[in-house]
Design a protein around this nucleic acid. Structure first.
Length: 363
DNA sequence: TAAACGTGGGT
DNA sequence: TACCCAAGTTT
């Protein structure tokens, strides 16, 4: 049962959101929503998947390119896999792109091209977990679902001065968040809590002085806000070594490899090479006059550091090794590669920003 | 349950 | 530099 204080708190947050909601490409403003504008579930879904563990700044351009190229779920469902993977290149967590296509096709094939409007039905779709199901149900369909992302966890931990570490405290934080979720304007409310966490109740130096929840905030009263939420420490990252092999044919074509669906960079194009291990052996994909570049690529993934040694070779125009993709010179765009592979390419070509240059159409 | 899964920006 | 963090999901 929502008491008066709870009601006031939700209302304060909504009032703050009405004044300070950020203007985001996928968002229907509170004013437009009040005027009856309904969000497009396709755009809500696409933005939420892109925003999983990814910043708004990184997502903006990708969202614009995706929606320009594939304006609705049917268009996306009909897109070739390699084009979608190439468009996702650089955004990371590539399982999201693979699941994005599976989900689009499931919506077309099983739901007549319309996203389901319930949390439970959304949860059954590929790439949609508890958070995203709640976010789509709330934001796109104005259902009173409770979103629990990193922002909401932080806001709730501080509001209630909860010191139990994540992820163990997640159920408690979810219960606290659910107790505040209003029946009115749940879509705006969900975005309001997340906006508060993203812009006011930030991890390092929260702007408590201008926070709409500063009075009821228990962590602020206790002075513990910057210590919360507590998290269980992470394991240190090991360093691994790898070799990649960049071959260019006399006709200009580059020899690439489509990585297997499962695992790191799954489904993405890359240069062929060795395993990435503590002491990986050289593994040229075919015999050639391989030359080792004098510098190395350093890259950090979620759970390990990588040092990549880059070998190059010029080969005859008729070389076409089994299992490799012959990418014609004019069709090859470094920006279609995952970032670690783009770094290897840039090291070879002596460039430093080919991905962004290509994507922005500046090169 | 815990590990795998990317990348870029902030501090 | 090194670590933290970001609108998490899958296995």
């Amino acid at each position: 049962m929502r008491d008066t204080a709870t009601f006031d708190l939700s209302r304060s947050l909504l009032a703050w959101y009405d004044r300070h909601a950020r203007d985001l490409p996928w968002r229907v403003s509170p004013a437009d929503r009040a005027a009856g504008v309904q969000p497009d579930p396709y755009r809500v879904w696409l933005s939420e998947v892109m925003l999983q563990q990814t910043t708004v700044a990184a997502v903006r351009d990708y969202f614009q390119r995706f929606t320009a190229r594939w304006p609705d779920v049917r268009a996306l469902a009909a897109a070739p896999d390699d084009q979608v993977m190439a468009e996702w290149a650089g955004l990371g967590y590539y399982a999201r792109a693979r699941n994005l296509l599976k989900c689009a096709r499931a919506v077309v094939d099983q739901h007549d091209g319309r996203f389901p409007d319930s949390h439970d039905a959304l949860l059954k779709l590929p790439g949609i977990g508890p958070y995203t199901a709640a976010a789509i149900a709330a934001i796109a369909f104005d259902r009173p679902e409770t979103v629990l992302d990193g922002n909401v966890e932080r806001v709730m931990a501080r509001l209630h001065d909860i010191h139990d570490p994540l992820p163990k405290s997640k159920p408690l934080l979810k219960a606290k968040a659910a107790a505040l979720t209003p029946d009115e304007r749940p879509g705006d409310y969900a975005q309001a809590v997340m906006d508060l966490g993203a812009t006011i109740c930030t991890p390092k130096s929260p702007a408590c002085g201008i926070c709409p929840l500063r009075d009821p905030c228990q962590a602020r009263a206790a002075g513990t806000q910057t210590d919360l939420p507590r998290k269980t420490p992470k394991a240190p990252k090991p360093t691994r070594l790898g070799h990649v092999y960049i071959a260019q044919r006399a006709d200009g074509a580059i020899l690439l490899e489509r990585r297997p669906e499962m695992g790191l960079l799954g489904g993405m194009l890359g240069f062929p090479g060795s395993e990435w291990a503590e002491d990986a052996a050289e593994a040229p994909p075919f015999p050639a006059d391989w030359t080792l570049l004098p510098a190395e690529v350093r890259h950090t993934f979620t759970h390990f550091h990588l040092i990549l040694r880059v070998w190059t070779a010029a080969v005859p125009a008729d070389v076409d090794p089994l299992g490799l993709v012959v990418m014609p010179k004019h069709a090859f765009r470094p920006g279609d590669l995952p970032t670690v592979m783009r770094k290897a390419h840039d090291l070879w070509r002596g460039s430093s920003a080919s991905g962004k240059m290509d994507r922005a159409g500046l090169s």
